[in-house]
Amino acid sequence: MRVRPHVHPGGIHAGELLAPDAELTRRITGYRANALDRALSPPSAPGATRRGVA
């Protein structure tokens, strides 16, 4: 599985735990949910590959 790091200026490690209602937290949570969805969802058609998965 390929991964892509995201750097958020002004963000701190685990900052979403300190500010659960912040806009950045919502964005980070969305990135994680999308990544998990792509990784755990089956390909949509025979012979298709999931994006980011070889």
Score class of each variant (00 low, 15 high):
16 E>L: 08
41 S>I: 04
6 H>C: 10
32 R>C: 12
53 V>M: 03
24 L>D: 03
49 T>K: 13
42 P>E: 04
27 R>M: 15
42 P>A: 11
46 P>M: 05
2 R>V: 15
43 P>Q: 05
19 A>Q: 10
24 L>A: 12
40 L>W: 05
22 A>H: 14
13 H>N: 06
23 E>Q: 11
21 D>K: 13
29 T>E: 15
41 S>W: 03
1 M>A: 07
31 Y>I: 15
27 R>K: 14
14 A>I: 08
13 H>C: 02
35 A>G: 08
25 T>H: 09
15 G>R: 00
27 R>G: 03
25 T>E: 01
12 I>T: 10
21 D>N: 12
20 P>K: 14
51 R>S: 02
21 D>I: 12
47 G>P: 01
29 T>P: 02
8 H>S: 07
19 A>G: 12
43 P>N: 10
17 L>K: 08
4 R>N: 09
49 T>N: 05
47 G>Y: 06
40 L>V: 13
12 I>R: 15
46 P>S: 09
14 A>Q: 06
53 V>S: 00
43 P>Y: 04
1 M>W: 09
7 V>K: 00
16 E>I: 04
53 V>Q: 02
25 T>Q: 05
21 D>P: 02
34 N>D: 11
9 P>F: 04
32 R>Y: 13
36 L>A: 06
52 G>E: 00
15 G>D: 01
51 R>Y: 03
30 G>E: 10
32 R>T: 11
18 L>Q: 14
31 Y>A: 12
9 P>N: 08
40 L>C: 07
30 G>M: 07
51 R>H: 02
54 A>T: 11
12 I>K: 07
32 R>Q: 14
4 R>A: 12
4 R>W: 08
43 P>G: 07
41 S>A: 13
52 G>Q: 00
36 L>P: 00
23 E>T: 15
24 L>T: 12
9 P>E: 04
49 T>E: 14
21 D>R: 15
28 I>R: 00
39 A>I: 09
50 R>Q: 01
11 G>K: 03
42 P>S: 09
36 L>T: 11
19 A>P: 02
50 R>W: 00
17 L>M: 13
19 A>F: 15
27 R>C: 03
11 G>C: 09
7 V>E: 10
54 A>V: 10
39 A>Q: 01
27 R>S: 04
1 M>N: 13
45 A>V: 04
47 G>F: 06
9 P>R: 03
15 G>T: 06
53 V>I: 13
44 S>L: 14
22 A>P: 06
46 P>C: 06
7 V>W: 02
31 Y>Q: 08
54 A>D: 07
37 D>I: 08
14 A>G: 05
42 P>N: 08
35 A>I: 03
6 H>V: 15
3 V>I: 15
25 T>R: 00
47 G>V: 03
18 L>N: 09
36 L>M: 03
44 S>Q: 12
19 A>R: 12
52 G>H: 00
51 R>D: 05
46 P>G: 10
28 I>M: 08
4 R>G: 12
47 G>T: 09
23 E>W: 11
19 A>D: 04
23 E>S: 14
13 H>F: 01
13 H>Q: 04
39 A>W: 02
16 E>W: 12
34 N>H: 09
50 R>V: 00
48 A>G: 02
33 A>F: 12
23 E>C: 04
7 V>L: 03
42 P>D: 07
14 A>C: 10
22 A>I: 08
15 G>F: 00
31 Y>K: 11
40 L>S: 08
